[in-house]
Nucleic acid binder design. Structure first.
Length: 472
RNA sequence: GCCCGCUUAGCUCAGCGGUUAGAGCAUCUGGCUGUUAACCAGAGGGUCGCAGGUUCGAAUCCUGCAGCGGGCGCCA
């Protein structure tokens, strides 16, 4: 058996991705990774080694006259972490282009087959959710998390290429961004013995900030303030909603991209949203064909074709009024009635996207009454300059609007909704000093990833999921 | 929050009132001159989610609870 090269050995130590990119055939080298499978015959064993650098595995041949069979059978089970060294040899007559003929190996960490949960067969996504810490050992999650990483990078690249400033809005906030769901309260007060005032209410002046504090549900309001000086900004960070939504599309902690642009009207903002989404799809197709092909084969047969079609398609733009009209004339029977003034239900959105348009749809100019206070009132005074981007399979992926920049109008509408204006003093003040038209939107990273990966549950596109009653 | 479904071996599932509960894969043992989800032979492995109830008899029917999944609502 050859001498162990060790961690700082004078031999090549390469990732498997490097080997496939430019195989150093004939050279002696060391590779590190985890055993995916092992097959043993009388004279030799075969190990498929993966290291996370690529979905492809490296076949390692272990001749039993080099490495004792008993040792291999005791050590090299699925999941074991090892370093293997030997010579890289071309194998033109075999399914793989080359393989490593081992001289020896070092077992970093065994994986006892009696207790190691993963096997070499495919597991259900539901089962893997129970052992989230091992999901990165599977090719599915390597593909998904690599796409997540790459899409995140592409988002930054897209905005930076266009002069947007990446801003960090606070995670801890004193107030709600109205209409964005329930908040997680953050406190250092002892929950077992909360200090109270004479009238029995909680004495928040004794809390850490001297007032109630929450985890942010959106960076939008702060983003608007930053855009009113920097021009074009975007946020990209975690947001938190304490809404007990039990669906495959909701998380309590998720990542959101929120651009906010001074001097943008609704149409220009819709253009930006559409362009961004197509850019991200093109980026994934160009840089991650291997991952997308794998996910297409495993999970969503139409994934590649759908991405190809979407990156070229012109999203269909319909005003809310047009959309209601189309639904009313569709001849379809919907569970929820279609009438002007009611919000579009999931079944309505699905009809518009999957049957009527058969491509992404942007619905804009929604009734004022069903949308948030900060959306700009249109001249008809019945609708606001809001829009949703609806995708096949996953529904709403972006929600945005032109913001109400007129001080008196904004104030009046907030009052009409019974909001406490004192909590929004800074926000309102931006409308008193040099207020200009501006717009923005929110893109849910996990929902985008459902579209890019072909998976159907957002718990599977974030490494460790947090949802009502679940911390994966 | 409302509605529906599922829970049987390590995993994926079959069994849906009637002998000692099954299969494939995994594991273990042995075999195999290069395997590719290797193959061949054999073995071990189960309080049938939990708690009650109905019945001569319950994995199977009923009730409650829990976990998971899905639909709806809310939204990203």
């Amino acid at each position: 058996m050859g001498k162990a090269p060790g961690l700082y050995a004078p031999v090549l130590r390469e990732t498997i991705a490097d080997l496939y990119r430019d195989p150093p055939l004939g050279q002696r080298l060391a590779v590190e990774g985890w055993v995916r499978t092992r097959r043993t015959t009388r004279a030799m064993s075969f190990v498929e080694l993966q290291d996370g650098s690529t979905l492809r595995a490296l076949q390692v041949v272990l001749p039993h006259d080099q490495v004792a069979r008993e040792r291999i059978e005791a050590d090299l089970h699925t999941g074991a972490g090892v370093q293997v060294w030997g010579q890289l040899v071309a194998t033109p007559d075999r399914p793989q282009p080359f393989e490593l003929v081992a001289e020896g190996y070092q077992l970093y960490g065994p994986a006892d087959p009696a207790t190691y949960p993963l096997q070499k067969k495919q597991h259900s996504l539901e089962f893997l959710r129970e052992i989230a810490y091992l999901r990165p050992r599977t090719r599915t999650f390597q593909a998904v998390f690599r796409l997540r990483s790459s899409a995140s990078f592409a988002i930054h690249q897209y905005f930076h290429e266009r002069g947007f400033v990446y801003v960090h809005t606070p995670i801890l906030t004193p107030s709600d961004c109205e209409g964005a769901g329930q908040l997680f309260q953050v406190t250092t007060l002892p929950l077992g013995a909360v200090p109270r005032r004479a009238d029995g209410t909680v004495a928040f002046e004794e809390d850490f900030f001297g007032r109630p504090a929450y985890l942010t549900v959106s960076g939008q309001l702060e983003g608007e303030m930053l855009a009113m000086g920097l021009g074009r900004i975007y946020t990209f960070g975690p947001t938190f909603r304490a809404e007990p939504s039990h669906t495959p599309r909701h998380l309590a902690e998720f990542w959101m991209i929120e651009p906010e642009m001074a001097f943008y009207d609704l149409e220009r903002t819709m253009d930006l949203a559409e362009d961004l989404l197509k850019y991200l799809i093109r980026h994934a197709l160009r840089h991650h064909y291997e991952e997308l092909a794998f996910l297409t084969e495993r999970y969503e047969p139409s994934l590649l074709a759908e991405l190809e079609a979407t990156k070229e398609s012109a999203f269909l733009r319909l005003s809310y009024t047009e959309a209601v009209d189309i639904l009313a004339r569709s001849g379809k029977t919907f569970q929820y009635p279609v009438e002007w003034g009611a919000d579009l239900q999931a079944e309505h959105e699905r009809y518009l996207v999957e049957e009527y348009a058969q491509r992404p749809v942007i619905v804009y100019n929604y009734p004022e009454a069903i949308k948030a206070f900060y959306m700009r009132l249109n001249p008809d005074e019945r609708t606001v300059a809001a829009f949703d981007v609806l995708f096949p399979r996953i529904g709403e992926v972006i929600g945005g609007s032109q913001r109400e920049e007129r001080y008196d109008l904004l104030r009046r509408r907030m009052q009409a909704r019974g909001m406490d204006l004192s909590a929004y003093e800074a926000y309102l003040s931006t409308r008193r000093f040099g207020s200009v038209p501006h717009s923005g939107f929110g893109l849910g990273l996990e929902r985008l990833l459902l579209f890019l990966t072909g998976l159907t549950n957002v718990r599977d596109v974030i490494p460790f999921f947090r949802a009502a009653g679940q911390m994966g």
